[in-house]
Each structure stands twice: as structure tokens, then as C-alpha cells.
Amino acid sequence: MAEQLAIGSRRGLKPALPLLLPAYLWLTVAIFLPLSAMVFFSFMTDLPLAGKEWAFTLGNYATFFSQSLYLTLLLASLRLGLEVTLWCVVIGYPAAYVLAKVLKGRSREAIFLLVILPFWSNGLVRIFSWAMVLREGGILDTALNAVLPFKINIDLMYSYPAVIIGLVHSYVPYMVLTCYLTLQAIDDSLIEAGRSLGASRLQVLKRVIIPLSMPGLIAGAALIFVPVVGSFMEPRILGGRTGTFYGTVIEDQFVAVFNWPLGAALSFILLAVVLIILGLAAPVLRRAA
């Protein structure tokens, strides 16, 4: 009877509402309504502010599809996302494996924390710190010239590789984190069983370890790819004039050109691309969580 009462009080939305409403109202006002407003504005000729004339139009989307510049930049951003994600897999996966299967005890905990710590520090500042390293006469340049017998000029600053390096540095801890979580869950006896049945290390890796850690790989890839496609600050700082991507063009519409409706349309197209990607990754993400 008492138990029924207790469970009974836990049913229904009504008692939960006062606790839920403030948080979800806030999210609605500051996230969901703005996103809806953005879609709405993207179909307008001008902002309906201060008595300006405006009308509904498909012109902003027509601009995207008629001028090859925007599509080219979107493709460039998608390529950037793909390259950064691949580098993060190549660099992050082995590290996650060592953390999960080689290191033990306190040293594992400490190093794991060290790897993900930068991820939670200021991203802008970390990107800026690369400028110190990559510029001509910077640390990399000076250090290499001090060691090498011949003179070389390292000036990676304001180039595509600089953008890649900065972004990989920013996002690789994500890949280490997600892969570590799935790798750690793999029972060591599965690996030993494979080995004792005569499989080589490579075969065990290919047939046992990689398939079982796939959810972590895909989760990491989605969580890296999406923000990289929408990045603008990193290409601006490290890419200079070569750092024009889809994200920087959206930024320009809002802070330099002041064509907000076009900016809204470009943002919405990016949102659609992002949602498709997340939708594809969602089943895997759910299983990983």
C-alpha cells in the first residue's frame, strides 16, 4: 500500500511541471525560439525592424544555389571537417588504446585527465597559442634552425595546414575520450581468446578491437566533424587570407556585411547539413550512451 502510494505520487506530468518549467522555458526562449526565428528570417528580404520594408522571398536561398561561391565554401568546410576528423582518429585512437589497455591504475587516471584537460580550457586561447609556434621566426622555425645544419624557413602561419593543426589540437581529446570509454569496456579475455586461438595482433585488432570500439569512433567523429564544419574563429586566426570557409562567410554576414537574412539562410543550410549528419550518427550515439 505504502509502495503503491509512493509510486503513485511519481506518475504524471503535473507534479513535475513546477520543477521542469523554469529550465525548459529558458531553453525555449534562448535556443528553440531563436532557431525558429532564424528559419523565419531566412525567407525575408530585410529585417522587419524600425519600419523597414520587408517581404517574403526565396531569394536568400536562390543566392546560395546560384552563386557557386557559397557551395564551394560549404564543400571546403565539409572537407576541412573530414580531414580534421581523420587526423583525430589517426592520432587519438592509438592514444585511447594505450590508455585503456596498457596503462593501469593511478598513472592511467592521471594521464587521462591530462589528455582531456586542455579540451575544457579556452579554445580561443589555445588556437592563439599556435600562432606563437607557427609564425615565421616563431618557436618551430627557431628550434628547427638551431638543430638543422642548413637554413630553412618555416612559416606555416596563415596557411591551410596551420588551420588543420590548430583544429586537430582542439578536438583530438574528444576522440581520445569517446574511444577510451568504448575500449575500456572491451573484456581483456576476448583479446586473449583471439590470440590463443592463433590470431595475429593485427587480426585481433581488425576483427575484435576495432569492431567493438566502433561506437566510440563514430561518436567521436560526429562530435568533431559537426563543430569543425561550423568553425570560423580558428580559420580566421590561423588561416589569414587562406582561411575563408563557410563559417567565416556566415560570420561576415552578421558582423561585417550586415546581410542578416542571407546569413540566416546560410546558417539554416548549415544546420540542415549538421542535423542530417547527427541523424545518421544518432543510432550509434544512442547505443554508445
Binding site: 531563436p34 526565428a37 532564424m38 529585417l47 559537426v226 563543430p227 561550423g230 563559417g247 546569413g263 547527427l278
Partner: peptide
């Protein structure tokens, strides 16, 4: 999950509106 660029510009539009 949505890039901050999108959230940020959407907020700018809405708060202005």
C-alpha cells in the same frame, strides 16, 4: 550538438527581433 555559430547567430536575430 548544434555548432555555436548557428546558435549564436540565431540568438542575435531573435533577441534583436
Amino acid at each position: 550538438a548544434i555548432p555555436w555559430l548557428i546558435t549564436g547567430t540565431a540568438m542575435l536575430i531573435f533577441f534583436f527581433g
